[in-house]
């Protein structure tokens, strides 16, 4: 159908190298982060060489593609290469502008959710929790393992971009369908580890001792709290903070200050 003039089948072919480059360039995603449209400026910067290759001499097409990509986008930084790869395959196949844009807008949100659940709420607490236990004893193994994990994750952007490119729309549909299940499993793992982190790393010890008879005292910590359940104060305080954050919408900075004021006050009173 010749009347369908917006589709120009003559588009440049992308090589595997172009997709690898796209994966590496996804690091620019936040280069110009701002409140007006979040990542879109950096997102477009990452995409331009790929778009340039696809559109070649067609500067109007390139301009339209760049302008379209400058619309608001805010996604997870490891999900970005996946979406970039997918969109690259659509641009290459000469899909309608509206189809490509629609997909980008529809997918960045769900992908951000699953990406954040995995990278910030699962991988970071686990890696930090385990490597910190080495670091606290002064072992270089802590920072070294931490560094290696994240270098590996950086290079994972390349296969992630290839995955997006080869996945096609159908596979993305199934990723979106399964994203709820994967997020759920990641949350189970994350919450289990955070429970462990609370027990291991939040430290509240009461120093107060109550004199019961001449020369005999009872320590509130060892003879009362520890008898109920170990680490019950850290768990209680974390839940209090969670309650304030979730139900009262208190800002984390305010809670940090509150923690300091309480700690200093109780230190002055000799309780902690």
């Amino acid at each position: 159908m010749a009347s369908n003039s917006t589709v120009t089948p003559k588009r440049g072919k992308l090589s595997g190298k172009d997709i690898t480059k796209l994966g590496v360039r996804s690091i620019y995603n936040q280069s110009a982060m701002n409140y007006e449209r979040m990542q879109s400026d950096g997102w477009t910067l990452a995409m331009t060489p790929m778009l340039k290759k696809v559109y070649g001499e067609d500067t109007d097409g390139l301009a339209a593609a760049m302008s379209a990509n400058l619309q608001f986008i805010n996604t997870n930084n490891y999900a970005a290469p996946l979406l970039m790869g997918l969109l690259a395959s659509l641009e290459e196949n000469g899909e309608q502008r509206s189809t490509i844009d629609g997909l980008r807008i529809a997918l960045f949100g769900p992908l951000a959710g699953i990406g954040d659940a995995i990278t910030w709420f699962t991988i970071l607490p686990i890696v930090a929790g385990i490597t910190a236990s080495f670091a606290k004893q002064g072992s270089i193994l802590g920072p070294l393992v931490f560094f290696l994990v994240y270098v590996a994750l950086f290079f994972a952007r390349i296969p992630i971009a290839h995955l997006g490119y080869s996945a096609g729309t159908k596979a993305i549909e199934s990723i979106r369908e399964n994203s709820a299940i994967v997020s759920h499993a990641a949350s189970v793992l994350g919450c289990t580890v955070i429970g462990g982190l609370i027990a291991s790393y939040v430290q509240i010890k009461v120093l107060t001792k109550i004199p019961v008879a001449a020369g005999h005292t009872i320590s509130i910590q060892t003879q009362f709290f520890d008898r109920i359940f170990p680490n019950i104060l850290p768990l209680g305080y974390t839940f209090l903070l969670y309650y304030l954050l979730k139900k009262k919408n208190t800002s984390p900075v305010l809670l940090i200050l509150l923690t300091f004021v309480l700690a200093i006050l109780l230190s002055w009173m000799g309780v902690l």
Binding site: I194, V202, I264, S267
Partner: peptide, 17 residues
């Protein structure tokens, strides 16, 4: 002491989401 309790704020933020 505050340094020892501070992780609780971070974990609270994680749990919020």
């Amino acid at each position: 002491i505050a340094g020892g309790i501070l992780p609780a704020v971070g974990f609270g933020v994680l749990l919020k989401s």
